[in-house]
Amino acid sequence: MADVAARAGVSRALVSIVFRNQPGASEKTRQRVLRVADEIGYRPDSAARLLARGRSRTLGVMFAVQQTFHTNLIEGIYPEAERLGYEVLLSGVTPGRSEEKAVEALLSHRCEALLLLGSFAEPAFLEELGRRTVAVSVSRRVAHAHVDFVHSAEAKGVRQAMEHLLELGHRRIVHLDGGRGPGSAERRRAYRAAMRRHGLEAEARVVPGDHTEQSGIETGRLLLAERDQGRPLPTAVLAGNDRSATGLLMSLIRAGVEVPRDLSVVGYDDSHLSHLIPVGLTTVRQDAALMAEYAVRYAVERLENPGLQPREAVLEPKLVVRGTSGPVPGDAP
């Protein structure tokens, strides 16, 4: 700022007024200061200015690099944070970078609050983190942890998917499990409950897996190998998320199985991945934009009202029917 002031022939205080867009400088002086700043490549350091006031006004977002649904959430986080006057800093989790490391990186950069997308962390870690700072867990609920929670009504989403398949005549419905993934336990319970409710408990089958394409590919190979040994294919598979559903479709289509004529597939999330496959994936939509809005708003409201206790938002999911689900095959027993 001293360099700009010297070159523009004004005081440093006047430069500060211009950069803060405060009254006190003529339009001619304002334009001269801005032109000089542009000529010498000066940019105000907003982070330093905020820290000088004791605030960073930055929200840290921990996300899994390979999870497509997290990309959808991040797209919604940016505009809501900007609307409320906050910056966003991202820190990714990868197979070689733990959640703990991603979180500590955000805290070391003075993020005021953390948004945790699809955390796998132990409940004790979330509880301790929630006592250290304002934190919001998105897509995963942990009882009694001192953090805000934003997630969809998992059981309702699964019930919608199951009712859709059952109305199409399906009875041999397999669930490709999401393992320890966010929402997986609730989705697994809801699947079993739906099968019981319709007198199909004997047909219920949960295939272990996780929220990756590879899990879907391996499940497809398993079902095809069983078919070759005389066990009929299921007529439908409810996958734990869109990524595993996509991997399953890859295996089936490569083996000549026609979807949905021979077998129906339903995913979960309605991530942008579900729109990319040629026939379009039937899936349960989680409203990523609304989830992001709640997460940012909860974090900011607790930052600006320190006495506010953590809250929980449970959002309604919606089945989106596309091209991978259809009537049960006519020759299916």
Rank of each mutant, 00 (worst) to 15 (best):
E293I: 02
L176Y: 07
P329V: 10
A153S: 10
P232G: 06
P329M: 09
P317L: 09
V33I: 15
M62C: 10
V142G: 00
G183N: 08
G267S: 10
R254Q: 13
F125L: 12
Y78R: 04
D262T: 06
A236H: 01
L249M: 11
E316W: 00
L248K: 05
A204K: 05
D270S: 11
P260Q: 11
T94W: 04
L129T: 06
V18K: 06
A299K: 05
A292D: 12
V257T: 11
R171S: 14
D177N: 13
V207M: 12
K318C: 05
A153W: 06
P234E: 09
N21I: 11
A37M: 12
A292I: 11
L223G: 01
V61A: 04
L107N: 01
P79S: 12
E75S: 11
L51H: 03
R140H: 07
C111P: 01
G92P: 12
A194H: 03
H175A: 08
G209P: 00
Y78W: 09
E80K: 07
G24M: 14
R285M: 09
P123E: 10
A155R: 12
D287L: 13
L34E: 13
H198K: 13
E99Q: 13
R187N: 05
P310S: 10
R302F: 10
A299F: 07
E201Y: 01
H70M: 09
V265E: 06
E122K: 07
D331R: 10
F120S: 14
L117I: 08
A313P: 02
G24L: 14
L90G: 07
L315A: 08
E316I: 14
I40F: 00
A155Q: 12
S11R: 14
E87Q: 15
H164S: 05
V15R: 10
E80F: 03
H70L: 11
P310L: 12
R302I: 12
K156A: 15
C111N: 09
K101Q: 15
R205F: 08
S325K: 02
H272S: 13
S264C: 09
A255T: 06
E100F: 03
E127H: 13
A202P: 01
P208N: 06
L252V: 03
A5F: 12
L315P: 04
D269A: 06
F125S: 10
R197C: 04
H109V: 10
R227Y: 00
R97H: 08
